[in-house]
């Protein structure tokens, strides 16, 4: 697994947004020097708090935004360069996206059939009966029936709408799906429906998924590997269990320590760890250039050379113990 080449790979991806003009010009580094790769049929979780740049990363990869710098390759082909008709086609054929808000992400004036079928019609499937047949097939996959096809989005519950959004994403059989917080706007009782559905579809269609979320429990459950983002930087990448067992970057530790677990025995005595970049890093973290470094197989940390030694020791210490 570890030596399988990446299907999607981002290298030093930056997305800076500028606002204001002249002297008041402000640049927000929403995504700054982010590098990671996703292997075929793998679920890669991108986790972080609001404003950390995880959503922007996903949107930049699928080219809702044009990257400021850095490259993204998919299946060996660069998809971050100048936008051409051919590249647009390649992108939309291979990568689809699932959005967060089940109300906002469906056009209120289109029927479910039109919404789900749009991917087909814009690819030139003219035959109405054929579109209909494939829409119904997709609806069946997400647990809806053909009688739902003529309905408008507002008639559905949140979980059902999210499943419609999933049907829309998979109808063109993309290789990869970027799922941007697909469950966080849903009620607790229906989140599991959507997670199970994504899991089933992944198995059935061999999907590769970039799963973006802020809920670390969900990300850990759903993902093979996890990347942790903080203020535009990807600070740590590891397999879920490794990340949980031996978090290295101080932010990852803080994040893990903050997750409330539904267990009153442990929860009432849980010790929270704070993250204070000034205190938790040495001077050179800010002045020097920290880079993404592989500490142990499949475990990367964003660190400076001096921190690298420290982390190596920690990993060795854990292994000994």
């Amino acid at each position: 697994m570890a030596d399988t080449p990446y299907l999607l790979e981002a290298r030093n991806l930056c997305q800076h947004f500028a606002s204001g003009r002249g002297g008041k010009r402000l640049t927000v580094k929403a995504v700054d020097d982010v590098s990671f790769g996703v292997r075929p049929a793998e679920i890669f979780g991108l986790v972080g708090e609001s404003g950390c740049g995880k959503t922007t990363t996903g949107r930049t990869i699928i080219r809702l935004y044009d990257p400021t710098s850095g490259t993204v390759t998919f299946d060996g082909r660069e998809i971050s360069g100048g936008m051409t008709r051919g590249l647009r086609r390649y992108l939309t054929d291979n990568i689809a996206m699932i959005f967060q808000d089940p109300i906002e992400s469906l056009n209120p004036r289109m029927t479910v059939e039109e919404i789900v079928g749009e991917g087909l019609t814009i690819r030139g499937v003219k035959d109405k009966a054929e579109v209909r047949r494939r829409v119904v097939e997709m609806l069946g996959k997400v647990g809806l029936t053909n009688e739902h096809a003529t309905r408008y989005p507002h008639e559905f519950s949140g979980g059902q709408r999210q499943r419609i959004g999933i049907a829309r994403a998979i109808i063109t059989h993309p290789k990869m799906i970027i799922a941007d917080e697909p469950v966080s706007a849903l009620d607790v009782s229906v989140q599991a429906q959507v997670i199970n559905l994504l899991n089933d579809l992944k198995e059935e269609m061999g999907l590769t998924i970039l799963f973006i979320a802020h809920n670390l429990s969900v990300v850990k459950y759903f993902s093979d590997r996890i990347g942790v983002m903080y203020y535009g930087h990807l600070v740590e990448i590891a397999r879920g269990d490794d990340l949980y067992a031996k978090p290295l970057h101080p932010y990852t530790r803080a994040l893990l320590s903050a997750i409330p677990e539904p267990n009153p025995l442990t929860e009432k005595t849980r010790r929270r760890i704070d993250y204070d970049p000034e205190r938790d890093h040495k001077e050179d973290y800010f002045s020097g250039n920290p880079v993404m470094t592989e500490i142990e197989p499949e475990h990367f940390v964003y660190c400076t050379p001096s921190e690298l030694e420290l982390y190596r020791d920690q990993v060795r210490g854990k292994a000994d113990a």
Partner: peptide
């Protein structure tokens, strides 16, 4: 955005 990612 969703429509854009579909290639509309």
């Amino acid at each position: 955005l969703a429509a854009r990612t579909l290639g509309v």
